[in-house]
Amino acid sequence: MGALFVAPAAAYIGIFHLFPVVYGLYLSFTRYSPLDRGGPQLIGIDNYVDLLSDADFHKSVRVTVQFVAEVLPFAVAIALGLALLANRSMRGIGLFRAGLFLPRIVPLAAVSLIWLWLYSPDGWFNHLLGQVGLDPRNWLLDEGTALHAVAGMRVWKALGGNMVLFLAGLQAIPRTLYEAATVDGANSWQRFRYVTLPGLRPVTTYIVILNIVYLAQSFAEIFILTGGGPLRSTTTTNFLIYEEAFQNNRFGSASAMAFVLFALIFAFSFMILRRMGSNR
């Protein structure tokens, strides 16, 4: 009976989530343009070999890694700070929590549009620069600032969700540990260092991995804010895959890129799980 209840979902997930992975892997070993009448042609590992010397692909991986590395520390550290502040049971705190959480729930494409204005020549950031006597910048059209600008938006977007996860993590730390530490004469810094931080380790590991998986797949904000430019300085791997597949019609090599991205995300997450998750 249980099997019967699971059957519709299993069939659907098998066809539309599991099978595409296998199909994609097959495509990554082929040359295939959707405009061809002929269908995919098997070419072995050529697509993967070509990626080894593909400058655009290499650059996209570097951009993706830099992007994740820029967003992650801020998105985690600031969120932890906010969670510590908001982890009080006082009236009015709910309003702050809700306000800080709001960016997490709004659609990425929609907020990218808002940030497009904030970064625009007449936007808010240039207005702020002007007020302290600095020259306006062309945030999104300057190779030196475009990726940082997109990263800034993603920090803003990630804070609330991470804060809420930290709050849940804080509440999971047994109160008795704090009481014991106080009895032993620990001051508030020591309580934070030796009770709070170790207690938050599991949730921090989860947050870091979750953020990496999300950030490494950036697309909508790149599409709207920069279109991958200037000079490919914001072309993340995910964006490159989209271009390769749906603008250059190279489904085979785009699939190979997707699997390399998959492997990289998986390897990074695994590494972090090993380093952060194990030794306690």
Binding site: V21, N238, F251
Partner: peptide, 30 residues
């Protein structure tokens, strides 16, 4: 209502949540 092999089926179904969108994008399009 667990059945024989239900844990395996469950894990297999959940594992698909970890696959990046880019991997299934092209196959799903086709």
């Amino acid at each position: 209502l667990p059945f024989r092999g239900s844990t395996l089926v469950f894990l297999l179904m959940i594992s698909t949540a970890m696959v990046p969108v880019a991997v299934t994008l092209i196959p799903l399009f086709l």
